[in-house]
Simulated scan of single mutants.
Amino acid sequence: MIGGLLGCINVFLAMNSYSLQISFHLHFLFDALRAGIFEEIFFRMFLFALCLHITQSTCLNHTQVILSYFIMVLPHVLLHNSFSIDMMSVAILSLLFGLPFALMSRKINLLTAIGAHSFVDFIRFIMLGI
Rank of each mutant, 00 (worst) to 15 (best):
I2M: 11
L6S: 08
G7R: 02
M15P: 01
M15W: 11
S19A: 13
L20C: 14
I22T: 15
F28C: 08
L29V: 15
F30A: 11
A32R: 02
L33N: 08
R34M: 14
E39V: 00
I41M: 13
F42Q: 06
F43G: 11
R44L: 06
R44D: 07
R44P: 05
F46D: 01
F46T: 07
L47P: 03
F48M: 07
A49D: 15
L52Q: 08
H53D: 10
H53Q: 13
I54G: 11
Q56R: 08
L60E: 04
Q64W: 05
Q64T: 08
I66S: 14
I66L: 15
S68R: 00
I71L: 11
M72R: 04
H76Y: 09
H76C: 08
S82H: 05
S84Q: 11
D86S: 12
A91L: 14
L93N: 05
L93Q: 03
S94R: 03
L95T: 03
L96A: 10
F101H: 05
L103R: 04
R106P: 01
K107T: 06
N109A: 10
L110W: 06
A113R: 02
A113D: 10
G115M: 09
G115S: 03
F119W: 14
F119Q: 01
D121I: 00
F125G: 01
I126F: 00
L128V: 01
